[in-house]
């Protein structure tokens, strides 16, 4: 616990920064997210700027990561090495997109929006947790 304290503090700091960024970006608003996913209707392109800004900064940081032997607070980088585009990836992403469109929420913004104290957000988060647990317990490897 004491040994992991710096990592836990880093997680809290990065989570807060992430939640603040989501708040500033407008992504906590499901109506706005659905507006982005509606290019044939009343399209709101602002999420392109959110994603573009996020990817640009992360890409610049990846250059630094390439020159690092190990993370600042840990021994190894835990970066996925799988490069195969398989059926679970595509089916899962497809289902995710349908849910994202229906509710306008993806996992990060939904968790952040819990701070508003809305019962609808809580219902979404609980359903999402049930979905995750159902998948991890019963559906892994079935596809």
């Amino acid at each position: 616990m004491i040994r992991h304290l710096p990592q836990i503090a880093a997680a809290l700091l990065c989570g807060t920064l992430f939640g603040f960024g989501l708040s500033l970006s407008g992504m906590l608003d499901p109506a706005r997210v659905q507006g982005f996913l509606d290019p044939f209707g009343a399209w709101d392109p602002s999420l392109i700027f959110v994603l573009g800004g996020a990817v640009a900064i992360a890409m610049a940081g990846m250059v630094l990561v390439h020159y690092m032997a190990h993370p600042v607070l840990a021994d190894t980088f835990q970066i996925p090495t799988n490069r195969t585009i398989d059926r679970p990836l595509l089916v899962g992403s497809g289902l995710f997109g349908i849910g994202w469109g229906l509710g306008g929420f993806c996992p990060g913004p939904a968790l952040s929006a819990l701070s508003f104290g809305s019962s609808t957000v809580l219902v979404f988060v609980l359903a999402m947790l049930v979905g995750m647990i159902v998948h991890d317990r019963f559906l892994v490897g079935r596809l």
Partner: peptide, 28 residues
């Protein structure tokens, strides 16, 4: 707080949550 408007009904919110949960784990 930043603005937040949810238009989906509760049954739809539950279906959306389940799909996001299952889909995001299945799709890694």
């Amino acid at each position: 707080f930043p603005p937040m408007t949810i238009t989906a009904s509760i049954p739809l919110v539950i279906i959306a949550g389940l799909l996001v949960g299952i889909g995001s784990r299945m799709g890694s």
